[in-house]
């Protein structure tokens, strides 16, 4: 600041002597670079998504005509939208319990001293590091009729082979199996980190009271994992609702047999990038956005202690 203490000459305008960035508070300068990205690529798209949903926008780059609520009324009567919505909810309900439970079991198993523990932990976590495309390539190969490893194994066990990627009833089950294999390692790590935070003296006290393995699990471990479980469930719900990558890749964008595996994000994708209806696609994604924010806010209400919680880390 200051500079213009020079006495006589009335006014070389102070604004020129002090450059703009010097007159801004330091804190604003620190946050500015991030805020530019944040406003341009998060806040603006959020606002413009709502805005676009009132226009008959197509992919031409020119602004379409204002159509009021037409996109919204069309959406609420669109059976393809509702079936994709139903598929998304179905996937979420089907995938969340195994993803949470198996992650917990893996963590409980490998939190004890045992031979080759590093190897078991590695095996559980490795798939999480693979890109969705690699996961899809491997599982399409595993699910092949006749010469796929899954069906071959079923046949050897004397069980019936199944059309994992061709049966409408199995379409989503196959996706869930693949997803559990791929991403359970993340929940496993969250649980493992939480288990390592439990103070040893609680177990010592329980042991003195003569508590066995089952008793210690029930009265020490599980209660101490309560908060983590709440967090894992919410993160998993949010991640599962956003399912797209593995489904799109497993079914090559077809939505699966009878569209039985087309999630809502794929419906948005098809509407925008195959049918070129940006305005309508914006209405659907805004609706979906509201749904996800509702789940997030419900989480804040349900688990107030972990307030501003979480992150957007899980995208799968």
């Amino acid at each position: 600041m200051a500079t213009t203490i020079s006495p006589a000459p009335p006014a070389p305008p102070a604004t020129r002597a002090v450059p703009l960035w010097r007159r801004m508070p330091a804190g604003l300068l620190f946050t500015l670079p991030f805020l530019v990205f944040y406003l341009a690529f998060l806040v603006w798209p959020t606002v413009s998504s709502l805005f676009l949903s009132f226009f008959n926008e197509s992919l031409t780059g020119t602004r379409g005509e204002f159509v009021g609520l037409a996109n919204w009324t069309e959406m609420f009567g669109d059976s393809a939208m509702w079936s994709a919505f139903g598929n998304t909810v179905y996937f979420t309900l089907l995938s969340t319990p195994p993803l949470v439970l198996i992650g917990l079991v893996m963590a409980l198993l490998t939190n004890r001293a045992m031979p080759l523990r590093w190897l078991w932990r590695l095996a559980f976590f490795l798939p999480f590091l693979l890109p969705a495309s690699v996961v899809a390539l491997i599982w399409v190969w595993l699910y092949q009729p006749g010469f796929g490893l899954v069906n071959d194994t079923l046949a050897r066990l004397g069980l019936a082979e199944a059309g994992w990627l061709t049966e409408p009833d199995l379409a989503m089950v196959s996706v869930v199996i693949t997803t559990v294999w791929w991403t359970v390692g993340f929940n496993f790590l969250l649980y493992l980190a939480a288990l390592q935070q439990i103070p040893q003296h609680l177990y010592d006290a329980a042991a003195i009271d003569g508590a066995g393995w089952w008793q210690r699990l029930r009265s020490v471990t599980l209660p101490m994992l309560g908060r983590t479980t709440g967090l894992v469930i919410v993160l998993q719900l949010l991640a599962s609702l956003r399912v797209f990558d593995q489904i799109y890749l497993l079914y090559q964008g077809t939505g699966g047999p009878n569209f039985a595996a087309r999630p809502i994000l794929e419906h948005v994708y098809t509407t925008a990038f195959t049918n070129f209806r940006f305005g309508y696609a914006s209405a659907i994604s805004t609706f979906f956005f509201v749904l996800i924010v509702t789940v997030s806010v419900a989480q804040l209400k349900l688990f107030p202690s972990s307030s501003n919680s979480s992150n957007s880390s899980k995208e799968r």
């Binding site: 798209p45 959020t46 940006f278 997030s296 501003n308 957007s312």
Partner: peptide, 12 residues
């Protein structure tokens, strides 16, 4: 903004 899922913003 942490609650905003980036996948929902792909169209805009």
């Amino acid at each position: 903004g942490i609650m905003v899922p980036p996948q929902v913003l792909v169209v805009p």
